[in-house]
Each structure stands twice: as C-alpha cells, then as structure tokens.
Design a protein around this nucleic acid. Structure first.
Lengths: 338, 338
DNA sequence: TTTATTTTCGATAACGTTCTCGCTACTATT
DNA sequence: AATAGTAGCGAGAACGTTATCGAAAATAAA
C-alpha cells in the first residue's frame, strides 16, 4: 500500500532538485559522476521505477507497441506473437494485444478507439475480409508507424514482413509434380488476401511450366472444417484429383480427415501438401508434407523493423520476404521413378 | 502528422474552459445538457480521443491489465488469453502481454521492472518451477490487484481461478477403471505445481477407492517429448501398465506416439487418457479420450474477477473452481462388459 | 590577476487530464 | 423582498516527468 517512490522523493532525500535527479537517471552529460552515482544508488534503495504515464506525456512516447491480429489460437499467429514479444521485451518495449476475431468491424472499432500516445507503433495483420483500409490509413496519416505481417493491403503505404508465399507455392507444386502427381487440386483461402493470391499464382505458374491444368480451385476460409468441406466437394466431381495442395496446414488436415473418411489412401492414391508446418502436421497420420514458414522470425523481424520506424520517422518503407522450406513427410509419396 | 485534438482545443474552439469540457466528456452532473451535447459533438467532429497517459497520471488508473504467462503457443494458454482479451475489451480495458518462457528468472525480471501505474491489475500464471514468490508478494503489498489462474502459489494471499483438477483426475481414473483397465500408470507434471499435485491426488484417491495400486508415477515437464520419454521408461519396466493417465494432452500425445512406435495397440492393449481437450486430441489417431478444461471461461472469469478487485480494493479474495468434463474417444475402450 | 569557458545544477514551464474550490446567476422558499 | 439553495461554470493546482533557460561554481586561458 506504500506509494511508489517518485523522482521528487529522491530529490527531497538528497537535497537536490528534481531536474538533477531526472538527468542523473537518464543518459546524462549534464551531471557529475558523483551525484549520478548517488542518485542511482538511492533510487535503487527506494525501489524507484519510472512512471510511464508521466514520461509518456512529456516525451510523447510510451514504450508500448500494439499488435492487432485476427486470432491467437493457432500455431502461426501465436508463434509470430512470441517472436514479437521476445524482441520487444529485449528492447524494453511492452506489447499490447488486440484480437479482432477476424471480424472487420471489430478491427475497425479497435483501431478507431486507439488513444493518442497510448502506443508508439503498431504491428498489424488484417482480417481475411477487411474491405476498407481507411482506419489504417488514418493511423498512418496520424503519424503512427505501422508494420504489417502476413496479411496486408497493397493500397497502404507501409512496411511489411512476409513469408515467400509465391515461391513456397511453387516449391509445393513442383514437389507434387516430381512425385508423379498429375491432377493437382488447390484448396485455397479467402480470395482477396494477397497471400492467397500469391500461393495461387505460384501453383498456377508451376503447373503451367509443366503443361498441367489447374484443378478444382476452391476459395473459402482457413479452418480445418473449410478444408473438409472443400475436399468433399472436390471428391464429388466426376474427374477427381490425385493430389491436393492446401493453402495452409489446417485445411490440409481437413483434407486428410475427409480423404480418410472417404476411405482413400493418402499419399498413394491422393497426395496432400500443406503450408505452415504446424506441429500437428507431424502428429497426424500420415504425417503431413508441408511448406515451413518462419513464423518466429517473422515476429522478431517485424518488431525490429517497427522499432526502426519508431526511432527514425523517415525510415524507408520496406518489404521483407522470408524464405520458406519444404518439409517432406508421408502424405506425399514418390509414385514412380522417372 | 496532425497533432491529435486535446481537451484544450475543444475548449478554445467553444470558448469555454477545459474544466467544463472535461466534465462534459465524463458522466457529468455538473454541466448543462446543452453544453454537454455541444462538447460531445465537437469532440466527435475533431476526432478527439482521450490521452491515457494524462488520465492515468491524475487518476492513477490506466485502463490496462497485464497478463504474465509461461507461453502462448499452446491451446490452453492461448485460449485463456482469448477469453481474457475479449472480456477486457468489452469493459474498455487493454491487455499487456508478458511471456516468461517458463523461466523463473524472466518472470522475476518482468515483475520487478513493472512501472508503477502502468497497469491497474495483473492476471498471472506462474512458471512450472518458480521457487520464490516474493516478487509477486511485493506487487500485492504494493496494492496491485492480482488474480492467478491455472498455476498459483498457496502462500500468496490472492484470488485464483482454476479448473477442477482433483475431480477431473478422479473422473479420468474412474473412467479407466470402468473400462476395465487395472494397471493404471500416471505420467505427471512438475512436482511443485498444485495442479500436478491435485491431479495426482485425484488419481491416487480413486485408485484407492477401488483397491488398485498406483503405477509408475513419473514427474517431468509438460511437453510432448516429456511424454514420449516417460512412457518409454515405463515400458522398459518389467511389469507394464495397461493404461496411462497423462497430466495433459501434450504428454498424452507423446504417450500415443511412443506406444505406436513400440507397436502397441492403443485402447485395446493400453488405454490412454489426457487432460485439456486440445483440438489435436480429436485429430490424432486413435482420437484421444480426455478431460476437457474450460479454458475460455477461465480467461473470462479471471478477468471479470480481476476487474472487481480493481474496482473495489477490499473485494474479498476468492478461489473459483470450474468443472471439467470427460470426453470419450478411441484411445480408451471398454475391455469387457462387467 | 582578469576574462572566457566549461561543468554542474536549480527554477520553471510544459505535457493533457482531473479535481477542488469558489464564484456567479438563477430558482425556490419563506 | 429577503434569504437560502442550486445549477453551471472557470481558475488553478496537481499527477510525475522532461526540457529550456539561465545562474553559480569551477576551471582554463589570457
């Protein structure tokens, strides 16, 4: 119940002015070594902790950054957040978490209700169907540094950190082709998202390179249930696929479940490849071949970039793309040696 | 780049005092309806947003709460956080996330570096081997409301919200016995944690009730890998178990993987039951029988309780225990009809 | 010495709010 | 008509810190 010690308390105890104490506590060129040391010692003794509200008020900088994200209950997002959190903590920043539940309305509400000076910058990942971006544009216009990750809007002039969706999709499709699969379907995500488009493009381009035709492209959500539904629909068509490239692991899991309950041999009859490298992909049987995304690094690097923008207001806008990696497991198999 | 509007700007524009504007913007008994309406309108027009640093300074209350948690990359924790976040957002509170990585040193450092007045309260889940609790005690002594969830320290006089670990373990063990399993091993967690102790006690008591002997109790970490190791060790003993009760789903998953690679038929030869109801438990094959924890509700209720403590400084300390539920899947089977 | 320069510090005004007074101008009471 | 009460507002201090300006003391240069 004891009130926390302030700079005034230290000043009073030492018989010096608050200004001197303040200087001594920061990087001070303006204060003698003796008083600096003295102040630091008594500050420690009194358990002094700076009041961020006060410093924030005068310096217009709280050491806080915001994360706005559709959800945290999946491997990719929670790992990105972990990366962000760790880097931020190392640099003395605190992280405020905003979860949109993938609802554009919530997203807009959250952004609109932001108090000025409550955060120094923002890490953002938009919902899968954010239609208007003016709320983000207003933040940017207001001078708040924003770095997008994973999902972003082309129209917004802001830095972003992404995995290499296009090449990842190329690698995935190439792998299926090398295995000997020929009729490769793509179970994809929400149409407007750039990551969906890039993975789709990688798929199409790679098929084209090999003179193969695209197959049953279905746009829907990102969930396991979406994967099940989409694959069931594909299976009902007359001419079925012999492989499925899913836009992410959750949908690939759905695909595996759907194929299993249809009694189809996964790998041998129909190959499945995902995207993410969710830990579940090595637990499910057959284990899921997938494209690994560097989620943790994306978090760390996004945060690093954001802090640069915060420190230099004219820091140049960047697009950082991190490589992906093919992880081969049992859901794809070599059908014949070429 | 335009500076955000302040209360002063509104006052100047309307030719009234800042005090009146301030009153008009809050629940004002002291201001006429006309000026109140006028102020609200121009505030909206100028996109006024209150500055939390300033209000926090004078009112000694930021609308922020902290969550300190070992990790966010698992189903239980991320779901609890989701519950917390949603409730907090509904009530106008922001959530600051602190991740300890299950390291007692990080935990202590984070707590020690908290700035006074930077949060109004704290939701906490301790690491699996926090040895000393004085850093939390100091927070409590300093008057900061804290609510613990899932993991807590008996010695700390603070509210807590828990799942019913004891009865959950009883139900789990009882289920195994009803199935016909007789030699039930318990793969458990870090020894000091109360949840470990309660689940262990539930297991022991239920066995005792049926005159069965406990079997191969192994204390280790919470991870899948720990589960694999523990079960491999148990299998190497002369007289093997016919069922395994794991302290959580991740270890149960590890158990299933270990049993599979040992070529043991799960369910028929050895039954497995977990604790959590992680989504992965219905994806793995065989699907995992488990005790479902109300993670989301624990989050919401913890947050609700914390806000009560924040609003009434003498709000009574509570221990809230939420029920669990048995979810039967294929990793346990009825061995014979009694 | 005297002057110039540096080092070290204190006073004071901000930052954007809320809070406590107290003042004015009404309305109600007698 | 006199008093009391009340509604509505403004002035100014406070919250804990940093920033600006200048003053005093110490040192260096002349």
């Amino acid at each position: 119940m004891t009130k926390p010690a302030t700079i005034k308390d230290i000043a009073r105890k030492l018989g010096i002015s608050v200004a001197t104490v303040s200087r001594a506590l920061r990087d001070a060129y303006d204060v003698s070594k003796e008083t600096k040391k003295l102040v630091e010692e008594t500050a420690a003794a009194m358990h002094y902790r700076p009041n961020f509200n006060a410093t924030g008020l005068v310096k217009r900088s709280t050491h806080k950054i915001g994360i706005i994200i559709p959800s945290i209950t999946n491997y990719y997002f929670s790992t990105v957040i972990t990366g962000i959190q760790e880097y931020a903590f190392e640099k003395g920043y605190q992280v405020i978490l905003y979860v949109t539940n993938d609802s554009p309305d919530w997203e807009e509400k959250i952004v609109r209700e932001l108090s000025p000076g409550s955060i120094d910058g923002m890490l953002a990942c938009i919902t899968s169907n954010t239609k208007s971006f003016i709320h983000f544009q207003e933040l940017i216009d207001g001078g708040l540094p924003i770095v997008f990750f994973d999902r972003f809007a082309e129209s917004l002039n802001a830095s972003r950190v992404l995995q290499d969706d296009y090449n990842g999709a190329c690698i995935a499709t190439e792998h299926l082709i090398q295995c000997g699969y020929k009729k490769i379907a793509h179970v994809t995500g929400p149409a407007k998202l750039s990551l969906t488009q890039n993975r789709l493009k990688g798929y199409l381009d790679t098929l084209g390179k090999h003179n193969l035709k695209p197959f049953g492209i279905v746009h829907s959500g990102f969930s396991k249930e979406d994967g099940i539904k989409d694959v069931e629909a594909i299976l009902n068509e007359k001419d079925g696929p012999d492989a499925i490239f899913a836009v992410n692991d959750r949908k690939a899991i759905g695909a595996i479940l759907a194929l299993k309950s249809a009694g189809i041999k996964i790998g041998k009859t129909i190959g499945v490849i995902g995207f993410t490298n969710d830990p579940i992909s090595e637990i499910i049987s057959p284990a899921l071949t997938t494209i690994a995304e560097p989620a943790y690094e994306i978090g760390r690097i996004s945060c690093e970039l954001l802090l640069r923008h915060i420190q230099k207001s004219n820091y140049p806008i960047q697009e950082i793309i991190l490589p992906t990696e093919l992880i081969v497991r049992n859901s794809t198999q070599i059908l014949y040696e070429p």
